[in-house]
Design a protein around this nucleic acid. Structure first.
Lengths: 155, 155
DNA sequence: CTAGTAAGTCCGGAATCTGGATTTACTCTA
DNA sequence: TAGAGTAAATCCAGATTCCGGACTTACTAG
């Protein structure tokens, strides 16, 4: 009965998902990107339960993704702003959006279309920052640093 | 006591998160990208509870992201493969990874480094497919199609 | 005959999520 | 000045989900 040594990967994806890997967290961030910064507005736009949203906003503020700024005292009222770390979640949001546009849009197309300042509709593409080429799974492989047990990347 | 009309946005991000907006779902997909296709291996690498993982794999297969192929009969054994829809989640995965590398890596840097076939380490960047320029939140705005209540995008 | 492997399922307790009502401290309108 | 409205939560109790560990099934290898 030798138990197999469980060893979850140390992984940036897992760590990130511990913070934003839940529906309401990311939808709250989406709303702030769209300019809606108030609690009730975020509740209304996302459909999240108030309790749950309050908890998520706390986590996001604690993680340094959102900043809670008072806009009124007596009674205390707050708005949520993206920090620079929060703004850096933009790529995550737009790639999620693109996937949904591709695979889950109904007959009348994507529910929200963004326009880039170049004049075209936004279609998010992920490229290698170094060479500018599109990043495809088959074109990358784990760089060996110590023991690596990942097999090759194939579909 | 006029109840405020709740109207969650129809949104590709929300729809996508209904499928993959949970830690274990995306980590399972990560493992398959890394070439680990078997149930026990995915459990071991992600640390997910077996029950939960089984449920997530079912969802992912149902959503057309993974494909379950037998590699053995008697006893029946299966492997999970990415469909093309699944491979299209690569941008989501690498942008999540980049964010974690930036904000959550410890002293010894990112736990996993990918090498692009151009020879450089992978740093995922999101660009506008049309003009190739980096996509920044301030450079995009919702294109009005019918009523839109999103304010401008500002930080 | 025993041990190991692989892909799950079953279980019961713990934690989390959910919608609705309530609270607090105002401002605005009749 | 009373009543309604606004905004950010919080409280609650029931429903759901998550979790880890044990178990099952059907083999193969020694």
């Amino acid at each position: 009965m030798v138990s197999v040594p469980a060893e979850p990967r140390p992984c940036s994806i897992a760590r990130t998902l511990d913070i934003v890997g839940e529906k309401w967290a990311l939808l709250a961030v989406r709303e702030v990107f769209l300019g809606n910064r108030r609690f009730d507005e975020i509740v209304r736009r996302t459909g999240a339960p108030r309790d749950t949203l309050a908890a998520r906003l706390r986590t996001l503020v604690g993680a340094g993704i959102l900043e809670r700024r008072p806009y009124n005292e007596h009674p205390a009222r707050y708005e949520y702003y993206l920090t620079s770390a929060g703004r850096d979640l933009y790529p995550v949001i737009v790639t999620l959006m693109r996937w949904g546009d591709q695979y889950l849009a109904g007959e009348d197309g994507p529910p929200l279309v963004l326009e880039h300042h170049c004049g075209h509709q936004v279609t998010a593409q992920v490229v290698c920052e170094a060479c500018g080429e599109p990043l495809r799974p088959t074109d990358t492989r784990p760089l060996t640093r110590g023991r690596q047990d990942a097999a090759s990347v194939t579909a």
